[in-house]
Amino acid sequence: MTTSVDTPQAAAFRRQVLNPMKLRLFMVRKLPMAWLAGLRLTQLTPVHATVTVRFKHLTQNPFRSIYFACLAMAAELASGMQAMMHVQGGSPVSMLVVKLEGDFMKKAVGLITFTCPDGPAIAQAVAESRATGEGRTIACTSTGVDEAGDVVAVFRLTWSFRAKR
């Protein structure tokens, strides 16, 4: 696996999405459910991304914890923001989640932080798709921890990348 190279386009994308106001506008336009759930992108580097979701009225389930779909949204956003960053610049690349698996360890209450450390693998898959013109898939892992540092959920998202011709 290659290490992730930071490009000027990726850096410009990071500046945009790490600006809280610009991220909110993006989510209202493109990801309204993530905006309603209150997802926050707190870190984005060429290597990893961190997204938070808080237990509140709009994210709750009947069991007084965060609804699994809200957890899945946060996990997907952690890997998805990295994917979006790595497709910046160069020829266009389509991206799509083709598989999602989740394991739940304990009730998710309070602030849950999802981190995905798969930036280099995503960058490599995007580069290979651009080089070959063929689709590439990559399995990313987003791990959610609570405020005490306990793992509450682990999601595995399989992304497909295909360079457009």
Rank of each mutant, 00 (worst) to 15 (best):
S65T: 11
N61G: 03
N19A: 15
F55N: 10
Q82W: 11
A34L: 10
H48S: 14
L71I: 10
L77V: 00
E76G: 05
L25R: 15
T50K: 11
W35A: 14
Q16T: 15
K22L: 15
Y67D: 05
T45F: 13
S4M: 15
M27T: 07
L41H: 02
A34F: 10
P62M: 01
A34W: 03
L44R: 02
T50M: 09
V28H: 05
A74M: 03
Q9R: 07
L31S: 02
M27I: 03
E76Y: 09
R14F: 13
S79Y: 04
T50H: 09
F63I: 08
T45M: 14
A72I: 05
K30D: 13
P20W: 13
K30H: 12
E76W: 07
Q16A: 12
Q16F: 13
A10V: 11
I66D: 01
F55S: 05
P32F: 00
C70R: 01
G80C: 03
I66A: 09
V17T: 08
A49H: 06
Y67C: 01
Q16V: 10
S4W: 12
T52W: 04
Q9I: 04
M27L: 15
A12T: 11
R24K: 15
A37L: 06
A10P: 10
A37P: 02
R24T: 14
K30G: 12
A74G: 05
T50W: 03
T52L: 10
A10Q: 00
V28N: 09
K22A: 15
V53Y: 07
W35K: 12
E76A: 04
M73E: 07
A11Q: 11
A34V: 11
Y67A: 02
S79G: 15
A74N: 03
Q16E: 13
V53F: 12
A78D: 10
R24F: 15
D6K: 12
C70E: 08
T45W: 04
T42L: 03
D6G: 01
D6M: 14
Q82F: 07
N19H: 14
E76V: 03
L39T: 04
L25C: 14
S4E: 14
M81S: 00
A69C: 06
P8F: 08
Q16I: 12
Q82C: 10
